[in-house]
Each structure stands twice: as structure tokens, then as C-alpha cells.
Write a protein that binds this DNA or RNA. Structure first.
Lengths: 122, 122
DNA sequence: CAGCATCCTGCGTGATACTG
DNA sequence: CAGTATCACGCAGGATGCTG
């Protein structure tokens, strides 16, 4: 047991906590294309399968704040008059993108459609 | 944006749903080393930072069932007398291991300690 | 040993309304 | 525009006790 983390909060547990919430991963993914404003993120985050309802500001605000505190994203507030705030990935956030990409890739391949078809003969 | 508009339940959303819960990822990770019995999984899944309390059967049972229905793991029930049940990764589950590995790797590197130190000069 | 049945609680998510 | 304040609710997750 030289390098076997001493019961430290499992990396996966920390990860789960960090991306807990329904939108954090999607926000990070959205931000990978560059900085986005609050409203843009909001417009891009539609709820339900129909994709009609928008996330409530309360929730988005929380997610954004959590991501900021996790150090994944950075909040940039431009002066005041007509409020303008941009969110962008930090270096850490950028390093996280490939992980999300891996998740998406796997998800697209395994959750897209043929979900539980060839799982019987395992 | 030619191919980025399906609006289909985002892969990440599906992923989040699939691994929702505090133990699913850990269970999958545990199972990567081979089949495990119910009790073994339970013993390996300790709660809290102290790692003393064990997961309650109700919860473990749910997680296991969910993972089975997701097609990530497979339940093998040996006869009856003294109940013996083994859980193992399905092909799909195995294909998912690398993703979890990526998550762990990233987590160990970014959540281990130096969490929010060099996030200012981004 | 490997669960299931019941009860209880905190928190994540949403609706709605208001502000600098 | 970019949030905050309040209220409400469903559900994950834990505590206990029981069973085949």
C-alpha cells in the first residue's frame, strides 16, 4: 500500500460530487467552444426531451457557481451597465473536456439506441 | 454546427442518469477486477471518509439492480442453499471501464490536492 | 447470505416573483 | 441582462427489522 490512496474520498466520488447536477457536464461541454454569456448558456440548456422549457435562473446560477468553485469555469463580469457576464473554462476545465468527450463518445455508442440487445450472451 | 443539433437526450444526460447514485461508478470499478459476490461488493463499499459504515442493503440492491438494467453488469445466481450471487461486468460494462479509468485518472490529478491553486491566472 | 419492507429526512430541481 | 428570494415537492439514500 505505498500509493494506494488511504481511503481518500475515491476519485470517482469526488468526480461525482463535482459534476453532480443535471447540467454541469452540459455546461462544460458548451463552454468548450469558447466563452459564453449567461443567457447563451441558458438558451442552450433546454430541459426535457422536447427541449422547450428553459432551466430556471436559480438552478443555472447554482450550477455556474458550483462549477466556478470547483475551478472548472471562470466568471468574467464586464463593467455594469447592461449586465454582461461571460463564463469560460479554466485550464482545469479545459483539461476536463477530453474526459467529457470520452463520456459522450461512449454514451453515443452505447446509449444511443442498441442499449440492451447483446447483453444476454455475456 | 452541421451535426450538432439532434437535441436528443444528450449523451451526457443519459450518462449521468445511468451512473446516478453514489456507488454505481465504484461498483463498476470494483467489478473490473472480476466477478464479485454481493457481500464482497458491500464490504468494499464503505461510506464516509472514515470508511467505517457500510452501505445499506436497500441501497446496494437498488444500485445493483439499476446497473443490471442498464446492461453494465450481470447477475449470476448460483443455486440456492446458502445464497450465492455473483455480479460481473457485461461486455458493455467492460467497455465502460476505460471511461471510468479516465475519470479516475483526471480526478486523481485534479481533485487529489492542488484543487484550486492555479486557477487564478487563467 | 442476499436480499426485501417500511419509515424518515435532506437536498436537488422547478415554479414564481422581484431587483440592480 | 443576470441574477436573488421564497415556496414546494419528489426522490435518493440512510436506519431498522425481517425472510427464504
Amino acid at each position: 500500500m505505498a500509493k494506494t490512496s488511504p481511503a481518500r474520498t475515491c476519485p470517482v466520488a469526488a468526480f461525482q460530487k463535482m459534476i453532480s447536477g443535471k447540467y454541469k457536464l452540459r455546461i462544460v461541454w458548451d463552454l468548450k467552444d469558447g466563452p459564453r454569456r449567461y443567457g447563451e448558456i441558458r438558451s442552450g440548456l433546454l430541459r426535457g426531451a422536447s427541449g422547450s422549457a428553459e432551466i430556471t435562473p436559480r438552478v443555472l446560477s447554482r450550477e455556474l457557481k458550483a462549477l466556478t468553485m470547483s475551478g472548472l469555469i471562470d466568471r468574467k463580469d464586464f463593467g455594469e451597465v447592461p449586465p454582461k457576464v461571460e463564463y469560460r473554462l479554466t485550464r482545469k476545465g479545459k483539461s476536463f473536456v477530453p474526459v467529457v468527450a470520452a463520456i459522450r463518445e461512449w454514451g453515443e455508442r452505447n446509449l444511443g439506441e442498441a442499449t440492451a440487445l447483446a447483453d444476454a450472451a455475456e
